[in-house]
């Protein structure tokens, strides 16, 4: 399997570390325990397109948001999780 790293190009999956669903957002400080519990533990298991966090640990060391089809493993796109600086368009 290959992941199209926006900076490095197409790379073998072995260069990456998988984290999981990219959609949960960390609750703000002093948030309720229930919200934090949901953020830490509760995950959907969708069939089809899924946005996931992957870390390019053996490449550019960026966290990516990778769109993957959980049914076909097709990876149509990947983007950097953090916003880029001006002039660093990739």
């Amino acid at each position: 399997m290959r992941i199209p790293c926006p900076y490095c190009g197409s790379r073998d999956i072995g260069e990456f570390v998988y984290r999981g669903d990219a959609s949960p957002v960390r609750p703000a400080a002093d948030g309720a325990e229930a919200a934090m519990f949901a953020y830490v533990y509760l995950r959907d298991n969708p069939m089809g397109r899924h946005e996931e966090h992957w870390y390019h640990t053996q490449g550019c060391r960026n966290w990516l948001v990778v769109t993957r089809d959980t049914l076909t493993h097709e990876i149509p796109s990947a983007r950097l999780a953090a916003p880029l600086n001006a002039g660093d368009a990739v």
Binding site: V17, Y55, A82
Partner: peptide, 17 residues
């Protein structure tokens, strides 16, 4: 060592960009 660097990168690019 590697896990902590990954954790720091996650914090600075995903949690608090």
């Amino acid at each position: 060592a590697a896990r902590v660097l990954q954790h720091i990168d996650f914090a600075r690019s995903v949690l608090w960009p």
